[in-house]
Write a protein that binds this DNA or RNA. Structure first.
Lengths: 260, 260
DNA sequence: CAGTGGTCTAGACCACTGG
DNA sequence: CAGTGGTCTAGACCACTGG
């Protein structure tokens, strides 16, 4: 193929290596760089993009991280074949997915309560006044999740009920600058439960039908727990896609653990 | 604290940046570098370890990837506090977990069959003769998983039933050198189902009780699908732990998708 | 063998943090 | 302001792949 690079004099946005990564990524997603194809060597790319080899490598490392390419010493950089990347870096949010297929998402607040935390919640978020908000998520008016979020009430002083319907807590906390540090990581457990009576009513499914339950604790960049949330998803509507990489040592799914 | 670096003249094993990363990692895990503490600047580390700043940064990036440290421009590198790292890189296999708590794991082969693949399986593994093996996994004789594995029969020519009881397919395929390239990645979907009659009997749980079902496709390093496997775990016994990092944009768990 | 990616250096400029 | 991490350069040597 002919290698064209857009060495435009348009003002750069962001670092050089991210721009180069973007260009290469669109060559791959656009199909002009097929599976298992070998990329031009780092030296050649360096000339093409008029960037140092280290900058080129940094761009390639970004794409490696995203699962698009891989390298073999002494050989070159290869485009990873599609089945391997299908889900990688594509873990888009449920809202994005819905928007993509033209489905209208909506949040409905069930209730909101301020209270002194139970021992479990205090253990996670600290012994301070808590806000608990319960919501239903709908896709084209079909309920697909019941969500409960706990957070220290001091962080939610300026939020209204309509804020909770319009925005996720992530958006609210981040854009309103009520937290000092960005939310950076979360630990989540996924289990299977039988739907209880209230959730059955809210989600429009039979009592006892299978559901996925997720418990998630979200931390800021200093490792302080900021949010605790519970999600219940009807089993027939939802599934999780995960990718396992690196050394796979066991046929048993990693991340699995026995409880009790 | 006093910064000591072991600039020994002992022959280096592996790249410099990995050695430096190891030393820093053990300072953190060993406790001599506590949570939220600021590391010496890159320039200082560069002098201490007698390495270029780029090499120091590469070591720090490794530790960032592992979740031990994080950086703030204009400020420095910080040790991430423990709750954030707790689960990171610790997703040990179920077998390791069982061994750790002194539980005896066992595999029981239910049946093994060679057949021409259905359209679904052919779609994933190719249109060639397949082997299907069904097993039960037990922990101290308590069944906790029903596992079915499909793979091209040509790969399993030399395997016996007792091989299947003693080893995982990963172990068999890897150690017997029947595959050219190492297994490197897998894509897995997790969903909630109601237990069907046969699984109820095999796992000793009521029909209709909730369970986690995982479907996993395992690829070799060239992206060729080698194994397809199905796991059914009783809901009351098992859960998945995952970690979400990077930009968390949505309150909805990432990786979730709506089916149908 | 020539060519590749993996590692490493010494140096530079910038945006950003804190005081 | 001095000091920090983020980015980038030009150059070097090495281990490795394929023919």
């Amino acid at each position: 193929m002919v290698w064209i690079c857009y060495n435009t004099s348009i003002r750069q946005v962001g670092p050089r290596y991210l721009n180069i990564a973007s260009e290469l990524r669109s060559k791959i997603t656009g199909g002009s760089l097929g599976a298992n194809q070998v990329l031009p060597s780092e030296a050649v790319l360096s000339t093409l993009y008029d960037a140092s080899r280290i900058t080129i490598r940094k761009a390639l490392e970004v794409l490696r991280q995203e699962g698009y390419v891989d390298s073999r010493q002494g050989f070159g950089w290869l485009v990873v074949s599609p089945p391997l990347r299908q889900s990688l870096g594509r873990f888009s949010t449920i809202e994005d997915q819905l928007a993509e297929i033209g489905v209208h998402p909506r949040r409905k607040v069930l209730d909101s309560e301020i209270f002194w935390p139970s021992a479990e919640i205090a253990e996670i978020l600290g012994n301070q006044e808590m806000l608990r908000v319960r919501r239903i998520n709908l896709a084209d008016e079909l309920p697909f999740a019941r969500v409960t979020v706990w957070l220290p009430s001091i962080l939610a002083r300026d939020f209204s009920l309509s804020d909770y319907e319009r925005n996720s807590f992530y958006e609210l906390l981040t854009t309103r600058k009520v937290i000092k540090r960005p939310l950076s990581k979360a630990v989540q457990t996924i289990s299977a439960i039988a739907i209880a009576e209230e959730d059955a009513r809210l989600l429009g499914v039979p009592v006892g039908s299978p559901a996925l339950k997720c418990l998630r604790t979200t931390f800021d960049s200093a490792g302080e727990a900021i949010l605790f949330s519970e999600y219940v998803f009807p089993g027939h509507l939802t599934e999780f896609v995960t990718e396992l990489a690196g050394e796979i040592l066991s046929i048993a799914p990693s991340g699995l653990r026995l409880v009790d």
